[in-house]
Nucleic acid binder design. Structure first.
Lengths: 354, 354
DNA sequence: CTGTTAGCGCGTTCAT
DNA sequence: ATGAACGCGCTAACAG
């Protein structure tokens, strides 16, 4: 030590107790001093490690340390811990479209799974996630809207040791995990379900998404059922639920109204049900309505919403993310979620009418 | 140095180049070795400091270092940097109700302001923010839904040096900043505006919020205008925009329909406008509609939405947050946003009719 | 004026 | 139960 005798506080590691600032955050050394033990002991006690082979710390010491820590209000400095262990006790969720209920469901599921593990989910709403992740690390990262040209960035991140889970329909794992949940076939299932007992099936879809798989599935299914495609049965709306409501009213007010509606999201389907009921129709009898996505809200409402979607998507996603965060060092792979039909009250299974 | 001669790699600080793992992240020492300079020089070059008084590093060296860093793909380790400097280059936004457009606007504004400063906003969606913030630090933190009994937790965090900005109507600053934006008077302004040219004013409000200031302002304003309170003019809905749409249809289908609608949010007002137009009414002439919140969407739509709200709220909030993050060590205070009336097309200023 | 040396910060962990 | 060596980037003090 080169410290000037009279100035150097002995146990505190030298941070500015001498200066005018009040002591900011207590360090492990202060706790050690307070408890009259070494920093190593404090570390072992508070991080609960060293259970590897026998006790190692006596009960008396444990409580002395605990008390000291409480008294000082000690909280470990995550930056220091991260530097030493390489773990941040954090997972990052990179989510575009935070307004989307899908994103909220991801957050909720991860939150629930992470809390008991002492891991904090942080949400990154930056379109430029690749750059951010180059410097800010986490124990695992979920990225929801990857383009094919992001592949290089992903590879680089993976190579640096970032544990990545990527949501993408066709990308192959390459140092990162891929979460997959392909909509097309499931959506055809939905329309097909309606077509079993209906010949006049309309589609409620967001105006901007008419090139996507959810709408294509509609035209496909109509075509392969040998039915004519009726332009007036395509109800495009602006993406808001009010828009979906209004468009449903319009569809059902046609001279020759549809007897079933395929909505490309559960949220649109909910609006459609409200609109149909407003017009005095009995949903599931007078009119069949089916959604897409298998959200919990649909399951719980009355009448319960028929829908298609992956099973248990959010919880399993959260589970995998946290597995990775905890460092089970398995090889990355694909987590595929096949879609299923949930025929509930709003479009029940019926004896087939020709 | 106590290192065993033959094993210790000289410049790398000893991380496991020896082991089987590929080199994970390049460190500043590797860059220094690659460029043939000291770590200090690398640090000065890459962090752009030492600009205090003149350059300090020759152009030739600068480019040598830059090249070396690029070649290795060096990115500074934020944890190490944070430990040394106490800065994380991060701000945390603790937001409940992430689905609320208000939260999205906060995120968007902060994102925009933070990016050029090299600061990354991270969103915390944990109801238990107080606990999380005890261990995870950031250069500044915004907390949106503080209860009065959180005060103790806030004080503690502030004492530890966390820079806090708190959104609360009545709390006083105490080591943390308070953002304030009181709705009541502004809402009365809105209803008052409608009452200047209408006697039949309905209210569109969320069913659960009828004890809140936005609804109270309606009853208050009606009362002080000497008008009777008409139960059938209260249109409560479920919080969705489809619900607002449907409720507006109901209100306007009354035997004695209102000539103006006060909606307690801009989003409800937008739905109300859609509904009124659907019924063939000319908004701003046949019917006046006003919202609450002064969102940008309202300003841009046609007809433009009349509303009340704070001016420039999100950008100024973002500005203050980043000021704090950058450490301008001023005393905390209150940032108050008085509300204003924006009389636009959906409820224009009219010559007064008695 | 340019570049280097050396040591710090704080929690973890190996060897004693 | 402890001493002390880490990790990695920063920066005061110093040397050419």
């Amino acid at each position: 030590m080169v410290a000037v005798e009279g100035l150097q506080p002995v146990h505190t590691g030298g941070i500015m107790k001498v200066s005018n600032r009040v002591a900011l955050r207590p360090t492990i050394r202060m706790v050690a001093a307070e408890a009259g033990v070494s920093t190593a002991t404090v570390s072992y006690v508070l991080s609960g490690r060293r259970g590897d082979s026998g006790p190692g710390v006596s009960d008396a010491t444990v409580s002395r340390v605990r008390n000291a820590a409480d008294r000082l209000g000690y909280q470990p400095n995550q930056a220091a811990r991260a530097m030493r262990t390489g773990r941040t006790n954090t997972v990052i969720l990179s989510l575009t479209m935070l307004s989307d209920p899908w994103a909220l469901a991801v957050i909720e599921a991860v939150q629930r799974a992470a809390a008991p593990l002492g891991i904090t989910p942080m949400i990154l709403a930056d379109a430029d996630w690749a750059t951010v992740l180059q410097t800010h690390s986490a124990d695992a990262v979920f990225v929801d809207a990857v383009q094919s040209d992001d592949k290089k960035a992903l590879l680089q991140l993976a190579e640096r040791g970032t544990k990545l889970l990527v949501f993408h329909e066709s990308m192959e794992p390459a140092g990162f995990d891929v979460i997959r949940s392909i909509a097309g076939p499931g959506c055809e299932l939905a329309v097909g379900h309606l077509l079993r007992s209906n010949r006049k099936v309309a589609c409620l879809t967001v105006a901007g998404a008419m090139a996507g798989p959810r709408f294509t599935a509609y035209t496909e299914a109509i075509r392969s059922a040998g039915l004519p495609f009726r332009e007036e049965y395509v109800g495009d709306f602006d993406g808001t639920s009010a828009g979906a409501y209004a468009t449903t009213i319009r569809l059902l007010s046609l001279a020759d109204p549809p007897t079933a509606i395929y909505a490309t999201t559960d949220y649109a389907a909910v609006s459609a049900i409200n609109a149909a009921q407003r017009l005095g129709l009995k949903v599931g009898t007078d009119i069949d309505i089916i959604g897409v996505g298998n959200t919990v809200e649909g399951e719980r409402m009355t009448p319960s919403l028929s829908t298609v979607g992956p099973v248990d998507f959010f919880d399993r996603l959260a589970g995998l993310l946290l597995d990775r965060a905890l460092g089970a060092d398995e090889d990355p792979g694909v987590l595929d979620f096949p879609w299923q039909l949930f025929a509930r009250e709003s479009a029940p299974l019926k004896s087939i009418t020709p």
